[in-house]
Write a protein that binds this DNA or RNA. Sequence first.
RNA 1: UGGGGCAUGGUGCAAUGGCAGCACACCAGCCUUUGGAGCUGUGGAUCUUGGUUCGAAUCCAGGUGCCCCAGCCA
Length: 568
Amino acid sequence: MSSEEVVSRIPAFIREAVDEDLKNGRFKYVRTRLPPEPNGYLHIGHVKAFLIDYFTAKEFGGELYLRFDDTNPSKEETEFVNAIEDDAKWLGIEWAKVTFASDYFDLLYEWAVRLVKMGLAYVDDQTQEEMSAGRGTLPKGTKWSETESAIRPGVDSPYRNRPVEESLDLLERMKNGEFPEGSRVLRAKIDMAHSNILLRDPVMYRIMHVHHHRTGDKWHIYPMYDWSHGQNDSMEGVTHSLCSNEYIIHRPLYEWFLEKLEAFPSRQIEFSRLNLTYAMMSKRKLRKLVEMGMVRGWDDPRLTTLRGLRRRGVTPEAIVNFVTGIGETNNDSWVEMAQFDAVIRDDLNKRAIRRMAVLNPIKLVIDNYPEGESEELDAINNPEDPNAGARKVKFSKTIYIEQDDFRETPPPKYYRLYPGNEVRLRYAYFVKCTHVVKNDKGEVVEVHATYDPTTRGGDSADGRKVKSTIHWVSAEHAISAEVRMYDQLFNVERPDDGELESIINPKSLEILENAFVEPALADVKAGENVQFERVGYFCADPDSTPEKPVFNLTVNLKDTWAKLEKKK
RNA sequence: UGGGGCAUGGUGCAAUGGCAGCACACCAGCCUUUGGAGCUGUGGAUCUUGGUUCGAAUCCAGGUGCCCCAGCCA
């Protein structure tokens, strides 16, 4: 009946799973969680998980918890907790409350004691090497393809059947800090011959004499991911624990613990991670890029960190539209950056005001325009948005135009300015090129033209047409600006594959110091989106000063001519 | 080699036994005071081999390819 269709932001396979759980009574409500580890800044790869969690809760009338996974104090910092929260808020994610894995350390320890008492966990005194060998696997670093025979079954640890009381005592003393790091661990007692290696008595606690950003020096043992994540989900009453495909093999373990403990049966559901061509998602390499100074920081506009995208001028709406638009499955996939660019353009086309800016200026002198005079012309702020209003732009005898908009000898299909050709100056007049002035080296330093005063505003009274409209700024009135032009940071499509030094694009940043923008941009605020007509979308950078605004290229406009010319 | 996961135009996603469709990209054209935006159109895909069925992208069996796992990381 209704022509309106409710558009879901989550994939069918998740919606169906949640529906089923609600129908068959496994759950009576929906609660999801975002589990970032506070050891780095958020990038667009995280956004996919964030949005699936957020929209799953939202569409089922449930709630979302933001839970920091701070189980490894040697890697995590408070700085990142705040940054992640800020970024998620900026994105528009809303949560019912913020929690920490460390909030549950006490209860988790009680649960571990229960498992020991049930005979389902034990303290193991083996060295790491002994444990690894006992697991029936090859040394770290071995490629699966180099394994010549079937994987061997594991061998029980000599400590596997030690008395419950002994494990209990040892665990207590591990907690109290009586033993050196690496000397003992608590392991679940599952099955050393299991075909899924994760179930060959996985480690639950390891000894770490490390200060924790929230619990201080209280703990000397810290839980592993598998002995924390699912338990926290359950303790918080999280119904659906949505994560990436790499955790599929962890699911049996996730379920084993909760079943044995007869705890709230949170359900883990997986989906594939987002890969974006020409983007770096590896936290380790992202960090290296920053530390080596290959980019200017975590918020460098060339990075697909949330902070980088924000500084570049990408709006939260564009990010959400993009990520929900590509859909989710269990397929490995690489989404083309061009698709992201298209969404960004679509978003900015509707919201960005239009201004004229000349990035690589060359002087155009209008010989028949009166010396020393100027006038104001009407220009609209956004043809896509009538509410954006209009402005005045100053026009005078000497203006700057783009070097690209003039050729002394035009190639075929070139419609812009060249000797003898007439073009329209946007919102101003028709001008016809008469001659050029060159320097000693034979380079054109000035273009001369005459204008037709009857074409004021850009329309000819006699109905004559021009094939091209170019942008300009009045030399006398323009504001000097710095414009930062960005290109792909990497010269390979899938940068996670290669070594950083060899795949980095040395020309990913070009700084144009001598750009000019129209006076209406004098009071531009950092973060403001603007389209430089015929060039691209830009965003005012925080580095801007009242004397000299700085702009970042967000994304260029589609350039049919550039494509045409490239083909030649 | 053991276990697990995934295969639909160039890319990403639909089609839940009944005409293989959408978006991005590509190509051609229309329109244009942004060579922008918009509009129209063309081309191009079910990994493979069998089977079940009136009918298979979908179900079954075999094969092939790619990805993940042998941290006291998450």
